[in-house]
Design a protein around this nucleic acid. Structure first.
Length: 568
RNA sequence: CGGGAUGUGGCGCAGUUUGGCUAGCGCACCUGCUUUGGGAGCAGGGGGUCGGGAGUUCAAAUCUCCCCAUCCCGACCA
C-alpha cells in the first residue's frame, strides 16, 4: 500500500483524558473512530489489526479441530425463551420488535443458536464436535468505557463443544485452554488462567484468561509462590483462627449511642475489635430481602453472594428498606433473633462465639453472641472478598492482587442446553444420551486494545509483528527518480516475499514521516535517503527498541523479510 | 439509575458570567513561492443549521423551559 493513498486521519492534538492510554493512541493514530457510546468504526488500520488478531484466533481454533460457522446476529425471542434466558438476561440484551410485532434479540452470546443446529446431531459417532464463529455481539452495557475495552458492539470468537462424556468435555476444555495459551503467546500477552465465577453463563468449571493491565476492570488474586490464582469474585484465602472467649449464657444488650460504624464500635468502651463483630448487610435479591453476614473486618463480595444464592438481580437495600425489615437504620443492624428473613453467613463466622452485632434498635448492640446459638443461619457460603496480603489457601504465602483485563473465558456448561433444546444422540447401546456442552469466548477488539495498552510509548504504538497493521514501512525521504526508484524496488521485493509493507511516498518532511510511522507503530522501518543511498545502503530501524542499523540495499529485502517471518 | 461536566468549521478550543460590529483562534485542508534526515516559513483562500425544539427580546452561541447526545465518578455488568 502506498501511504499517499491510505486513509489515516490523525489527530495530533487529541486530548489525553483519563481513559486508557492505548485508546488515545488508537484514536490519534487513525485506527478507530467512535460513532456512539460503545460503538466504534474500524478504520483501515484498525481493521487490519483486528483481522490479524482474528486470524491468529482462527488458526489456533482450526488447529484443535474446531469448525468455523457464521450464525445470525438477530434472534427470535422464542429461542431465548426456550433456554429461559429471555427473562434472566435482563437489560444487557438489546431487544427489538419487528413489523409483525414479534420480539427479537441481538445476540449477546450464541449458546442458544448453536444449540438449534446441534439438535441435528444424532449419533455418538459424530461426536466430539467443536464449532466456532467470529462474529458481532451486542451487549447493552450500563456504562461503556475505556475505548475498545468495554463496548456495546464488538467482535468475539465464541466456540462450543459437544461431547457424550464428561471426560470428553474435560478434553475439549483442556484443548481450548491450550489453544488460548498459544493465542495469547502469539498476541504477545501474558495471560494468567484463573478460577472464575460463572455468572450468568451457568455451568460448572470456568477459567478466565486475565492480562495484567491497569486499564482493566477485574481484580485477580495471585500467589507469588505457587500456582494459585483466582478472580476476586471467586478467590479465597487462608485465615488464622480467631480465639473466642466463652460467651455468656445469653446475648447482652448494651447502649452504643451514636455508633454507626464497625470502626466506631471497635473504639468505644465495651465495644469489640472488628474481627469480633458481625457485619449485617441487608440485600435485596430478586425482590426478596436477605441478610448477608460477614466478619466486621471483611468485605462482602456481591458476585459471591449471587453465586451462592442463584440470584439474578441483586442490590443493597436502601436505608429505609433496612429499617422496614429490621427496625433500625444501618449501623445498628443485626440478625440475632431474626427468623422471617433468609440469613446467609460467611464461613469465616462459622463456630464463632462471643461476638458483637447490632440489636436492630438505633444506638443499641448485642455482645456475647454465639452465632450457632443465637442466629438462624440458613446457608453458609464463601462471601467475603479476599484482600491483598492474606495467606494463599494452598501454600500460605502472601497473596497479591493485580488489576487485569479479562481477555478470554472458557466454561464447562454441562447438559443445561441439551435439556432445554433436547440435544441428544444415540450411544453405542442405542440409548438416547444428552450432549454435554462447553462454551469458550475471546474478544477480538478487547485483545487488540489490550495489546495496544501493553505495547506503546510516548511516541505511539509498538505493535508486535504478529498483529501490526503493516509489518514494514519504507520511508522515502526524497521523491526523486533514484530514491523513489530504489524504494519501489524494495517495496516490490518485500511484497513478493509476502510482507505487509507500506510505501511512504508522501510529499512530506522527514520528521512528519518518522513521527507518523512511530505513532502507528510499524515494527520495521526502512529509511531511504540520499545519504545512505550514496553508499548503496538503507537504514533499518526497529520500532520496539529504536535501534538503527545500515543494511546494503541489495540485502535489505532479505534482512527485513527474514526478520518479519521469524517474528510472526 | 445517582453525582459532576461538556456540546461552537474535519479535529482541538475561546467566546456564554454582563445578550449587541460580518462568530474567532490553533491544527488540518486548497493555491503559489521558498524550504527539505526529526512534526517548516511566508502570502492568499475555502469551509460553521453555535446539539435539537420552543420561548423572552428591537436583537440570542450568550437568557428561560423542555429534549437529545457525549465524557468522568459511582451503582450495575460473562
Amino acid at each position: 500500500m502506498r501511504w499517499s493513498q491510505l486513509f489515516i486521519p490523525t489527530l495530533r492534538d487529541a486530548p489525553a483524558d483519563a481513559e486508557a492510554a492505548s485508546h488515545a493512541l488508537l484514536v490519534k493514530g487513525g485506527f478507530i473512530r467512535q460513532l456512539h457510546a460503545g460503538h466504534y468504526s474500524m478504520l483501515p488500520l484498525g481493521w487490519r489489526v483486528s483481522q490479524k488478531v482474528a486470524n491468529i484466533v482462527r488458526e489456533e481454533m482450526d488447529a484443535i479441530g474446531a469448525q468455523e460457522f457464521l450464525l445470525p446476529t438477530m434472534h427470535p425471542a422464542g429461542v431465548w425463551q426456550q433456554s429461559g434466558r429471555w427473562d434472566t438476561m435482563g437489560e444487557i440484551m438489546f431487544r427489538l420488535t419487528d413489523r409483525r410485532g414479534n420480539e427479537n434479540a441481538l445476540g449477546i452470546t450464541h449458546e442458544e443458536i448453536f444449540a438449534t443446529v446441534a439438535t441435528e446431531l444424532t449419533s455418538y459417532k459424530e461426536l466430539p464436535q467443536a464449532w466456532y464463529q467470529i462474529q458481532t455481539k451486542f451487549r447493552d452495557e450500563a456504562r461503556p468505557k475505556s475505548g475498545l475495552l468495554r463496548v456495546r458492539e464488538f467482535h468475539m470468537k465464541d466456540s462450543y463443544s459437544f461431547d457424550t462424556t464428561w471426560e470428553g468435555l474435560d478434553a475439549q476444555f483442556s484443548a481450548h485452554a491450550r489453544a488460548y495459551a498459544r493465542i495469547f503467546e502469539r498476541l504477545g500477552l501474558d495471560a494468567i488462567p484463573v478460577e472464575a465465577s460463572n455468572g450468568a453463563m451457568g455451568g460448572k468449571d470456568s477459567t478466565e484468561f486475565m492480562v495484567p493491565c491497569p486499564a482493566g476492570e477485574d481484580d485477580v488474586i495471585v500467589c507469588p509462590k505457587c500456582d494459585y490464582a483466582g478472580n476476586i469474585e471467586k478467590a479465597t484465602s487462608a485465615l488464622p483462627p480467631v480465639a473466642d472467649e466463652a460467651p455468656p449464657a445469653a446475648p447482652e444488650r448494651f447502649p452504643t449511642p451514636g455508633v454507626r460504624t464497625i470502626a466506631a464500635l471497635a473504639q468505644i468502651e465495651g465495644g469489640a475489635a472488628a474481627d469480633r463483630q458481625i457485619k449485617t448487610m441487608v440485600m435485596v435479591i430478586d425482590g426478596s430481602v436477605v441478610l448477608a453476614l460477614v466478619r466486621g473486618d471483611h468485605q462482602l463480595n456481591l458476585q459471591k453472594l449471587i453465586d451462592a444464592t442463584g440470584g439474578i438481580e441483586i442490590r443493597p437495600a436502601t436505608p429505609d428498606e433496612a429499617k422496614a425489615s429490621l427496625g433500625a437504620m444501618p449501623g445498628s443492624l443485626g440478625a440475632v433473633g431474626v427468623t422471617d428473613l433468609k440469613i446467609i453467613a460467611d464461613e469465616a463466622l462459622k463456630g464463632r462465639t462471643n461476638l458483637t452485632t447490632g440489636a436492630n434498635e438505633d444506638d443499641w448492640h448485642y455482645r456475647g453472641v454465639d452465632i450457632a446459638r443465637d442466629i438462624s443461619v440458613e446457608q453458609w457460603a464463601d462471601l467475603r472478598e479476599v484482600a491483598a496480603g492474606e495467606a494463599c489457601p494452598l501454600c500460605g504465602a502472601n497473596l497479591d492482587m493485580i488489576r487485569c483485563v479479562e481477555a478470554g473465558h472458557i466454561f464447562k456448561l454441562g447438559t443445561l442446553y441439551a435439556e432445554k433444546f433436547n440435544i441428544a444422540v444415540s450411544d453405542a447401546e442405542g440409548n438416547q444420551v444428552p450432549v454435554i456442552m462447553g462454551s469458550y469466548g475471546i474478544g477480538i477488539g478487547r485483545n487488540m486494545a489490550t495489546i495496544a495498552e501493553t505495547y506503546h510509548d510516548d511516541k505511539g504504538l509498538k505493535w508486535p509483528v504478529a498483529v501490526a497493521p503493516y509489518e514494514a514501512v519504507i520511508t522515502v525521504l526524497k521523491l526523486d527518480e533514484d530514491t523513489l526508484g530504489a524504494a519501489e524496488r524494495l517495496y516490490d521485493g518485500l511484497r513478493a516475499r509476502g510482507i505487509d509493507v507500506l510505501l511512504d511516498d508522501r510529499d512530506a518532511r522527514a520528521g512528519v514521516k518518522f513521527a507518523d510511522a512511530e505513532l502507528i507503530g510499524i515494527p520495521y522501518r526502512l529509511t531511504l535517503g540520499p545519504k545512505a543511498l550514496a553508499d548503496g545502503e538503507v537504514e533499518l530501524t526497529l520500532r520496539a527498541t529504536g535501534e538503527t542499523e545500515r543494511v546494503a540495499v541489495d540485502a535489505a529485502v532479505g534482512t527485513v523479510a527474514d526478520a518479519v517471518v521469524a517474528a510472526r
